[in-house]
Amino acid sequence: MSTENLPDNSQLSVLADEIRHFRKKNHFSLEMLADASGVSRSMISKIERCETIPSTVILSKLAEALGVTFSQLMAPAVEREIVHIPAARQPVLRDDESGFLRRCISPVLPGRGIDWVLNTLPPDAETGNFVAHRRGVEEYIYVLRGRIRVTIGDQHVTLNQGDSLYFQADADHSFLNLGKTQCEYFLVIDTSKVR
């Protein structure tokens, strides 16, 4: 995975700082976070030292174990109620293996439990498996362009352009582009009920 729009690797540094911050806030050692997330201690250590860029699947595991949203790991919290985030400053992660792009478009505001992401999935590519969230976490999807199959636990739902989907995200889930062109979809993760 690589960062875009961030030539100075500042996003990688923010990510490392935020993971360390939330790990310490939860009173987790590296070993405790590794046990809670299923991500190896050495991988977490490398992320915190800015030596590697984690995949979106690894970040989702860490976010879930730390009890935060994906966006909270990508940017330090701000205190304003009006937040303008120019496109050039929106964190964009690319999974080099699949080409999966994840653009965080929601601001990180204390006490809010909404993570709004624009995802772009290349033709025939899949996201990999996202681990189940805590009970009460909900996800909403809207397909801007293309066609995807969403797998939630052992259920499959096919979405076409303009379709939307809601599901309780306390089961493993993944996304597969069924088309021959890239698929773009909005994903909103709502953790407000578990705060």
Rank of each mutant, 00 (worst) to 15 (best):
F167D: 04
S10H: 11
L15A: 07
L30M: 10
A65T: 06
S192K: 09
R135H: 15
C183A: 14
D17Q: 13
N160K: 12
A16E: 04
T181I: 11
I58G: 00
E51F: 04
I58W: 00
S60P: 00
S106I: 05
Q11K: 10
R80I: 10
H84C: 12
P91M: 06
V143T: 05
C50N: 14
V39D: 05
R23E: 07
L165G: 03
D170A: 03
T191S: 15
D95T: 04
S106R: 00
D96I: 12
T181S: 11
L101K: 10
I189T: 15
R102Q: 12
E79Q: 15
S60Q: 11
E81S: 15
N26W: 05
S2T: 12
Q155F: 09
L109N: 05
K24G: 05
E18Q: 15
F22Q: 10
R134A: 15
E31Q: 13
R103C: 08
P7Y: 05
T151E: 13
L178H: 01
Q11A: 08
E79I: 09
S2L: 11
R89T: 12
F186R: 01
R80K: 15
C183D: 01
D96T: 15
P7W: 05
G162R: 09
F130H: 10
N177F: 01
Q90I: 03
I152M: 08
D154Y: 12
S71E: 08
C50S: 14
A65H: 01
Y140K: 00
H21P: 07
D154M: 10
S192P: 02
P122Y: 02
V57K: 07
R20S: 12
S106W: 02
L121H: 00
I114C: 08
Y142N: 10
P86W: 04
G111N: 07
V68N: 01
L121G: 04
D35E: 13
V117C: 06
I114R: 08
G146L: 08
A36I: 05
A125C: 04
E81M: 13
I53C: 12
G162I: 08
T181E: 14
L15I: 09
L159G: 04
R149C: 13
I141F: 10
G179T: 02
F22D: 02
S29F: 00
G67L: 00
Q182N: 10
V188T: 13
A75H: 12
P122A: 06
V117L: 09
